[in-house]
Measured scan of single mutants.
Amino acid sequence: MPSETPQAEVGPTGCPHRSGPHSAKGSLEKGSPEDKEAKEPLWIRPDAPSRCTWQLGRPASESPHHHTAPAKSPKILPDILKKIGDTPMVRINKIGKKFGLKCELLAKCEFFNAGGSVKDRISLRMIEDAERDGTLKPGDTIIEPTSGNTGIGLALAAAVRGYRCIIVMPEKMSSEKVDVLRALGAEIVRTPTNARFDSPESHVGVAWRLKNEIPNSHILDQYRNASNPLAHYDTTADEILQQCDGKLDMLVASVGTGGTITGIARKLKEKCPGCRIIGVDPEGSILAEPEELNQTEQTTYEVEGIGYDFIPTVLDRTVVDKWFKSNDEEAFTFARMLIAQEGLLCGGSAGSTVAVAVKAAQELQEGQRCVVILPDSVRNYMTKFLSDRWMLQKGFLKEEDLTEKKPWWWHLRVQELGLSAPLTVLPTITCGHTIEILREKGFDQAPVVDEAGVILGMVTLGNMLSSLLAGKVQPSDQVGKVIYKQFKQIRLTDTLGRLSHILEMDHFALVV
């Protein structure tokens, strides 16, 4: 994948999101292997301009796509893939009243899908469409860049269908997702969380590099694949309309690839034109409109599966009536509230959605109805927002919020430890010299600072030695090549209790 991002070429006709291997024109390309080798690009942008032909009021008969309808489940399912879809609609009884809503608040519980998330729908649909058009064949390999849930859905379907599955996901995604993927037989590649989507090191860039190296491999490409919004247009939206008897006044959905909100909203605009569509985008993402909503100094966020630093091709923002931004604290607070007060075992993005819903639905009156999409299960986040310690460490809970008995030293300040200034190293000294210094002084790690004293990161003896043994660096290389740029900081005025929580999850903390 090139470091400079080429513009994806656009073909003359058809839909841009065809499933299957992508040609340089962004659509299915038939021909000899030699032709494909000559024409197939190194990668295709996940934010390529959409060429979708959908228009409100256009006859369904003019759609270029294969459409399906929700099917009634048999008493005995032939395999677990038949437990994807037909998820329950559940009334939220307490939270709406707590925040003064007059309307009825309903939750579409997508964590009841077989793999635990709304992404099971698009995973199965992308595979079925690729099999139907002859792209996927027995023994082929599926590769997908994902925040985890699409990966789980694909790995689940691949396990049943017999495909090899490789999932490329950023490091910030939970260990629970990784464990589930491994249990399903998927191979996992992790990428830096802070890598831009168009960087060769991003999950998108690495996935395309693997595709170019592995024979008979395919990126189904949830960011561009029409099967993504079509899955929701054909099934999720129809289920909502049936469950609500066609009567709903507002739908609120958090947005990642945009397939969920695009597919549902398009069908609702056709069948229930008075329904307002509300999009939820986390602070630090750029999906919301108008652009002024996205202006923030924050560039990272903890909530998973929603928000991006690019506009995915499948996201149709014209069908969203209003956007709201959400933050991590309210997302996790509301997710825990949904679990504790409503018994809905949902993930953090569901918290984002409901946090926005109780604001947006203030305009609705008694007798009206708001539906929220709860995308995934708490299963993926047992060591994250479900953990009091994690919430404390991230600053989303305060010590006084917890009532468990603490040891005698818990409320003492870090400054009472009488710490001395640490050994520091410059980023320009060599790895070999740094190892000598650390061994001589008896230290395992040291902060790396520039000549102005600005902290650049941390270097550890173990990481340097393993990097040297693996051949990633040489003793003569500058130590700046092996620094940890993500590390926890703590102030002298913070409590030892807070430091204790940090050290339970990290090997060190830097006192500043």
Results as ranks from 00 to 15, higher is better:
Glu4Val: 10
Gln7Leu: 06
Glu9Trp: 02
Glu9Cys: 14
Val10Asn: 15
Val10Trp: 10
Pro12Tyr: 09
Gly14Glu: 07
Cys15Ala: 02
Cys15Ile: 02
Arg18Thr: 15
Ser19Ile: 08
Gly26Asp: 02
Gly26Pro: 05
Ser27Gly: 11
Ser27Thr: 13
Gly31Ser: 10
Glu34Leu: 04
Asp35Lys: 02
Lys36Gln: 15
Ala38Trp: 04
Ala38Phe: 15
Pro41Ser: 10
Trp43Tyr: 11
Trp43Leu: 11
Pro46Val: 06
Ser50Pro: 09
Ser50Met: 02
Gln55Phe: 04
Ser61Glu: 14
Ser61Trp: 09
Ser61Ile: 04
Glu62Leu: 10
Glu62His: 02
Ser63Pro: 07
His66Tyr: 12
His67Ile: 10
Thr68Ile: 13
Lys72Ser: 02
Pro78Thr: 12
Asp79Leu: 06
Gly85Tyr: 04
Asp86Val: 12
Asn93Ser: 12
Lys94Pro: 02
Ile95Ala: 05
Ile95His: 05
Lys97Trp: 05
Leu101Ile: 02
Leu105Tyr: 02
Leu106Ile: 11
Leu106Phe: 13
Ala107Ile: 06
Glu110Leu: 02
Asn113Tyr: 02
Asn113Phe: 02
Gly115Ser: 08
Lys119Gly: 06
Ile122Cys: 04
Glu128Ser: 07
Asp129Val: 09
Ala130Ser: 08
Ala130Thr: 07
Asp133Gly: 06
Gly134Arg: 13
Thr135Glu: 02
Ile142Arg: 02
Ile143Ala: 04
Ile143Asp: 10
Glu144Tyr: 05
Ser147Gln: 02
Asn149Leu: 06
Thr150Cys: 02
Ile152Glu: 04
Gly153Thr: 06
Ala155Gly: 08
Leu156His: 08
Ala157Pro: 15
Ala159Thr: 13
Ala159Glu: 09
Arg164Ser: 14
Ile167Asp: 02
Met173Phe: 02
Ser174Pro: 02
Ser174Lys: 02
Ser175Asp: 09
Lys177Ile: 02
Lys177Leu: 05
Val178Gln: 02
Asp179Asn: 04
Val180Tyr: 05
Gly185Arg: 10
Gly185Phe: 07
Thr191Gly: 02
Thr193Phe: 07
Asn194Phe: 13
Asn194Val: 02
Ala195Cys: 14
Ser202Met: 02
His203Leu: 05
Val204His: 09
Val206Thr: 02
Arg209Gly: 09
Arg209Thr: 06
Pro215Arg: 05
Pro215Leu: 05
Pro215His: 15
His218Phe: 10
Leu220Tyr: 02
Asp221Gly: 07
Gln222Arg: 04
Tyr223Val: 02
Arg224Ala: 08
Asn225Glu: 06
Asn228Asp: 04
Leu230Pro: 02
Leu230Tyr: 09
Tyr233Met: 02
Thr235Arg: 04
Thr235Asn: 02
Thr236Pro: 06
Ala237Cys: 11
Leu241Ile: 02
Gln242Gly: 13
Cys244Asp: 02
Lys247Val: 04
Lys247Gly: 09
Leu248Gly: 02
Leu248His: 02
Asp249Gly: 14
Asp249Tyr: 02
Leu251Ser: 02
Ser254Ile: 02
Ser254Cys: 13
Val255Tyr: 02
Gly256Glu: 02
Thr257Trp: 06
Gly258Arg: 02
Thr262Tyr: 02
Thr262Ser: 11
Gly263Asn: 04
Arg266Val: 07
Lys267Val: 09
Lys267Met: 12
Glu270Thr: 02
Cys272Val: 13
Pro273Leu: 10
Pro273Glu: 09
Cys275His: 04
Arg276Ser: 02
